[in-house]
């Protein structure tokens, strides 16, 4: 660190900006998070383990993380597709569709939840036909996955869209003229370029889904051991005025999320490392989104 301070940065205001960043991050992220750990520390290890490893809590982690992962994967695939269509083709009402993507962001989560439940309930527009072929959507794990997919939609689209937009069409044409097939052009030229952005979107969709409460609670059915998400378990604890128990589950969730995000980030570095040190634009973009999350202290 000392080295960094010795060489005078060419950019003005580095010290001030760094100081402010540290202060801001502490205020917004670190202090609330450390309060969580502090509250939990009123429990003994035994009590902590009893709370976070109970069969009911384990079942809720499986559902919360499982459904979030599935939702994020669905969004990864369809998000790239949607971004592709929105960037490369022009069609009527394109602007309208483009702005629709942001709807899951803008909608209050409770409204989203009620709307989804209305549609997927056994007497709803989509629920009724699904029910007739034997698929129960609302009040099952499938319902939870649907809600988590819904709220994660914008992330992949919005991270991949600008990267695709900046990509020169000539690259594809060059690949084609050098004899690459369509599939080859996609996997060897396009995919490597958008993959880091797509993974970032995936990560954000996943992180959002894990913590989601409002939109899931209406469609989940909330049956213990079956359709109970972890955030509901936390609310239940709070309802019993068991603050320590609630934060214990929160800490468990935080640790698992952290480990998963770290793994995804390592994957990302590996994937961009494979491509050599090119496209500084993307890695800067990724770094900006992921570093605050993971606290990786890499100075430039």
């Amino acid at each position: 660190m000392a080295v960094i301070f010795k060489q005078k940065s060419i950019l003005p205001g580095f010290g001030l900006a760094l100081g402010f960043t540290m202060f801001y991050l502490s205020l917004i992220v670190l202090i609330p998070l450390s309060a969580t750990f502090w509250k939990t520390s009123t429990l003994t290890w035994h009590q902590f383990w009893h709370v976070v490893a109970s069969p009911r809590a384990m079942a809720s982690y499986r559902l919360s993380f499982g459904a979030s992962l599935i939702g994020a994967f669905i969004n990864l695939f369809f998000g790239v597709l949607v971004a592709w269509v929105l960037v490369r083709y022009s069609f009527p009402l394109k602007r309208l569709f483009d702005s629709l993507i942001d709807l899951p962001f803008a909608l209050p989560t409770a409204v989203a939840g009620i709307a989804l439940t209305t549609v997927y309930a056994p007497n709803g527009w989509l629920g009724r036909p699904l029910e007739s072929i034997g698929v129960h959507a609302a009040y099952t794990r499938l319902g939870v996955t649907i809600a988590l997919t819904f709220i994660g939609l914008p992330f992949v689209v919005r991270t991949v869209q600008p990267v695709l937009g900046d990509l020169d069409k000539e690259l594809e044409e060059a690949a084609a003229s050098l004899g690459a097939g369509r599939w080859q052009t996609f996997t060897r030229v396009l995919l490597p370029a958008i993959l880091p952005a797509a993974i970032t979107g995936f990560t954000m969709a996943f992180a959002r889904a894990v913590g989601e409460y409002g939109s899931v609670i209406f469609i989940a059915g909330n049956m213990p051991m079956r359709t109970e998400i972890t955030p509901l378990l936390i609310i239940t604890r709070l309802q019993e005025y068991d603050y320590a128990g609630a934060t214990a589950i929160a800490v468990a969730m935080l640790v698992v999320s952290f480990v998963l995000l770290l793994a995804i980030n390592l994957l990302q570095r590996w994937s961009s490392g494979r491509r050599g040190r090119e496209s500084s634009q993307e890695s800067a973009f990724l770094g900006a989104t992921l570093k605050p999350v993971l606290g990786r202290g890499e100075g430039q």
Binding site: I114, T117, T118, A121, P122, N123, G124, A138, Y139, I217, F218, G221, N222, M223, P224, L232, I235
Partner: peptide, 21 residues
């Protein structure tokens, strides 16, 4: 016999009345 456990009384009324469950 309870298929859905809502978090509040109004939620349950909605499930029963609006969703037909």
């Amino acid at each position: 016999n309870v298929p859905v456990l809502d978090s509040g009384a109004r939620g349950s009324t909605t499930t029963f009345v609006e969703r037909g469950i």
